[in-house]
């Protein structure tokens, strides 16, 4: 890493407002606030453990390239830095098969509001030692602590992958195909990503009359909605031609911004209490509220 965790902690310090920035791909830097950057660089890769340790400021592209040399990958949303991806907490298009990105974070060393280093989680793929602060950090937009370095769980890259299209009902494909990596639907066309043994993929494609295509669909960039997977069917009438939905997951890439929803008051109170415990003076990423930012 280009910066030690101790030096990073010293930069964050213990008083005064401070913001963290990555490559600026997911959000604009806060104005009028001192900005720090997390350490960058890969510390180690352990292919037999399926783990990688890197600074939170490391570009996702860099770990993708390094892991590819070992035939592995990590379920972190592409683009920007690892820390930025974790802070925002969104999963990639392969969540249906890979699970949520949050499950890839095994351990994080973060700097708390008092400028001290805190370890969350542990280095092994299985660990239930204490409360799971890693889950708290993913999607917290840097409001509870600034992640310095992480250990992530990797997964093998499949030997073969192929995108397909189909005019079949996406739920029919979700039911019939064995663990598809992604099923996307715009109300008329279904896209399917299959991975695994090439003969198995070919057999499934033939059985469901899928047509091979080079890529998945272009995703609308207006907003990222979150819906119960069973409710996605309603989009066909409500938003024809304006969306690509992740079937079986519930993420919707929409031309329009995500609708604002009234907060659950019990959870708003819980969020406020957590913020008070972790950052009593509100100095970390001031002005950002993890509950209302999306």
């Amino acid at each position: 890493m280009d910066l030690t965790l101790e030096d990073f902690a010293a930069e964050v310090g213990s008083s005064g407002p401070v913001a963290i920035a990555g490559l600026g791909t997911r959000s604009r830097p806060l104005s009028d606030v001192r900005v720090v950057h997390a350490p960058s660089g890969i510390e180690w890769i352990e292919p037999a453990e399926m783990t990688i340790c890197c600074g939170a400021g490391t570009p996702v592209d860099e770990i993708d390239a390094a892991l590819a040399e070992h035939g592995q990958q990590v379920a972190v949303h592409p683009g920007g830095t690892v820390g930025g991806a974790l802070a925002v907490g969104q999963s990639g298009l392969r969540r249906l098969a890979y699970g949520a990105m949050r499950d890839a974070l095994l351990q994080a060393n973060y700097v708390n509001a008092a400028g001290k280093l805190v370890k969350a989680g542990g280095p092994t793929v299985k660990n239930v030692s204490g409360f799971d602060l890693c889950r708290l950090l993913v999607g917290s937009y840097g409001t509870l602590g600034f992640i310095g370095d992480v250990i992530l769980r990797t997964r093998p890259k499949a030997s073969f992958e192929q995108w397909f299209t189909s005019d079949r009902d996406p739920w029919e494909l979700l039911s019939g195909l064995f663990r598809p990596t992604s099923v996307l639907w715009n109300g008329a066309t279904t896209w399917v990503l299959l991975e695994g043994n090439d003969r198995d993929v070919a057999e499934m494609a033939e059985r469901f009359s899928l047509t091979a295509v080079p890529n998945g669909p272009e995703l609308p960039g207006g907003g990222r909605w979150s819906m119960a997977p069973s409710e996605l069917i309603s989009l066909k009438v409500a938003s024809p031609g304006s969306f690509v939905a992740e079937i079986g997951v519930g993420v919707v890439h929409h031309t329009r911004p995500r609708p604002v929803r009234p907060p659950d008051l019990v959870q708003a109170d819980l969020h406020a209490r957590i913020k008070r415990e972790f950052d009593p003076t509100g100095r970390l990423n001031p002005g950002i509220d993890a509950l209302s930012i999306r």
């Binding site: 907490g89 969104q90 999963s91 969540r95 949520a100 949050r102 239930v128 409360f131 799971d132 602060l133 889950r135 708290l136 993913v138 999607g139 917290s140 990222r224 979150s226 819906m227 119960a228 997977p229 069973s230 992740e246 997951v249 519930g250 993420v251 929803r261 907060p263 659950d264 019990v266 959870q267 109170d269 819980l270 969020h271 957590i274 993890a290 509950l291 209302s292 999306r294």
Partner: peptide, 24 residues
């Protein structure tokens, strides 16, 4: 008080309180 942490939708607003509740 009663609340639903997480839910059927993949990206509920706010912190992953579901995730910290599991294993607590």
């Amino acid at each position: 008080s009663i609340s639903i942490l997480g839910g059927e939708e993949p990206e509920p607003d706010g912190l992953d309180l579901r995730g910290v509740f599991v294993g607590s």
